Amino acid sequence: MTNPHPPVPPATDPAFTPPSLGRRFGALIIDWLLCLLVSNFFGGPIQHAWLPVLLLIVEYGLFLGLFAQTPGMYVTRIRCVAWFDGGRIGLLRALLRGLLLALVVPALIMDEHRRGLHDRLTGAVITDAPR
């Protein structure tokens, strides 16, 4: 059975409450560990320190662009959606968000909705995932 009322976009929802920073950080740690594991198939993070970072950017681009969740986000039950309409952000914006996240500093500059600079520049927001 489908819901006859579509979800309210986060930008227009006065009751919007962002997930905790702990869940966001937990998702990032899970995704980072997966990237470290995969990079071992290509020589390892010691020989190629840039490889896990590149894998993280690609992972975020593909998974957020196509599914609105990375594997870490799936485990922590959060997702990344468009701020104004609540839909997927698409591949290009997801890749840009991953690149900005890899720079670290944009993620530390947050607003009252816990949207980092990387979220605001790409029009994204982290929300709770439906069960």
Rank of each mutant, 00 (worst) to 15 (best):
W83C: 00
L36M: 15
P19C: 09
P18H: 11
I46A: 15
Q47H: 15
Y60V: 08
Y74P: 00
G87W: 10
P14G: 13
A82E: 11
W32N: 02
A49R: 14
D85F: 04
A82L: 03
G22V: 10
R88E: 06
A15D: 15
F63Y: 07
G44V: 12
G61P: 09
I89A: 04
I29E: 10
L56P: 05
L36H: 06
G87I: 07
L37W: 03
S39P: 09
E59S: 14
P71N: 05
V75D: 01
G72F: 14
I30Y: 05
G44S: 07
T70I: 01
L56C: 12
Y74H: 10
F16R: 13
L62N: 07
F63G: 11
C80P: 10
G44A: 10
G43N: 08
L64R: 00
P52A: 07
P71E: 08
V81C: 05
L37T: 14
D13I: 10
F41K: 13
F41Y: 08
G44Q: 02
V53E: 08
F84D: 12
G90Y: 00
T17S: 10
Q69M: 11
L34F: 04
F84R: 14
A15C: 08
T70R: 04
Q47R: 11
G61K: 06
Y60Q: 14
G61C: 01
L36N: 03
R88T: 12
N40L: 15
R79W: 11
H48P: 08
L21N: 10
P45K: 12
G61D: 07
I57G: 01
L28H: 13
W83A: 00
W32H: 11
P19E: 09
L36E: 03
V81P: 03
M73A: 15
N40E: 13
G65K: 01
N40Q: 14
G44L: 09
A15L: 11
I78Y: 02
C80Y: 09
F67V: 03
L51P: 00
S39K: 11
G43I: 06
L62Q: 04
G43S: 11
L54V: 08
G44N: 06
G61W: 01
F41T: 11
F63P: 02
F63E: 03
G72K: 07
L34D: 05
P14Q: 13
V38I: 09
T70E: 04
F41L: 14
L66C: 00
F67A: 13
G90W: 00
L55C: 05
W83L: 02
L56E: 06
A27Y: 03
I57N: 01
A68Q: 03
W83Y: 06
W50K: 13
G43L: 05
S20Y: 02
A82H: 10
L55G: 15
L33Y: 12
C35M: 15
P14F: 06
S39Q: 07
G90L: 01
Y74L: 13
H48W: 14
G72D: 04
L21D: 07
R79L: 14
R77T: 13
A27D: 02
V38R: 01
V75R: 10
I46M: 07
P52Y: 06
L64F: 00
F42C: 09
L64N: 02
D13L: 07
R79S: 07
I30R: 08
L64W: 04
I78A: 10
P19R: 02
G43E: 03
D31N: 09
G87R: 05
P14C: 12
I46V: 15
D85Y: 06
A82M: 02
L36S: 01
F42D: 08
W83R: 02
Y60I: 09
